[in-house]
Simulated scan of single mutants.
Amino acid sequence: MEIKLTVDIPEFSQQGESYVTRRFAPALQEVADYLGASARQRLMVETTRRFSDPVAWTINAFAYRRAGTPDSPGSYVYVLERQARYLGLEVTGGPRVGGDYATNAGGPLVPASGARGDLDPQGNLPRDFVRDAVAAGARWAKLKPGQPEALVLPGRGPLQVLAVVARKVDYQPRFPFQDIVRDAVLEKAPAAVAKYLA
Rank of each mutant, 00 (worst) to 15 (best):
G157W: 03
Q172S: 15
R127H: 13
L143D: 13
Q178A: 14
Q178N: 15
G146T: 07
A136L: 05
A163S: 12
N124C: 09
Q122L: 08
R167G: 09
A105F: 01
A184S: 04
L109A: 09
P111Y: 11
R182K: 10
G146V: 04
G123T: 01
A112P: 00
P154I: 09
A166R: 08
A135G: 09
D118K: 15
R167I: 03
P108R: 02
V164Y: 09
R156E: 11
Y171C: 03
P148Q: 04
Q178E: 14
G123M: 06
Y101I: 06
Q178G: 14
A138S: 11
D132N: 14
D183P: 02
P176M: 00
D118I: 06
A136Y: 02
F175K: 01
K142R: 15
G155K: 03
D170S: 14
A141Q: 14
R131C: 10
A163R: 03
P158E: 15
P173T: 12
D179P: 08
R116Y: 10
A133I: 10
P111G: 12
E149C: 05
A163C: 08
L109K: 08
I180A: 07
P126S: 04
Q172P: 04
D120E: 09
R167L: 04
R156W: 07
F177G: 00
P154F: 08
D170N: 11
T103N: 05
G114P: 10
V161S: 10
R156S: 12
R174A: 06
A115M: 06
P108N: 09
V185W: 03
R139W: 08
L153P: 05
L151K: 07
V181T: 00
Y101N: 13
A133T: 08
V130H: 08
R127G: 05
D118C: 11
G155L: 08
A133Q: 12
V161E: 11
A105E: 13
F129P: 02
G146H: 04
D179T: 12
E149A: 15
L143I: 13
L151P: 02
Q178M: 06
Q122P: 10
A184N: 01
D100W: 04
P154E: 06
P126I: 00
P176R: 04
G146D: 01
G107D: 01
G146W: 00
G157S: 07
R131I: 14
Y171E: 01
A163Y: 05
R131L: 10
Q172Y: 12
P126E: 05
P154K: 05
A136T: 09
L162Q: 10
N104S: 14
A184W: 00
G106W: 00
P154A: 08
P121Q: 07
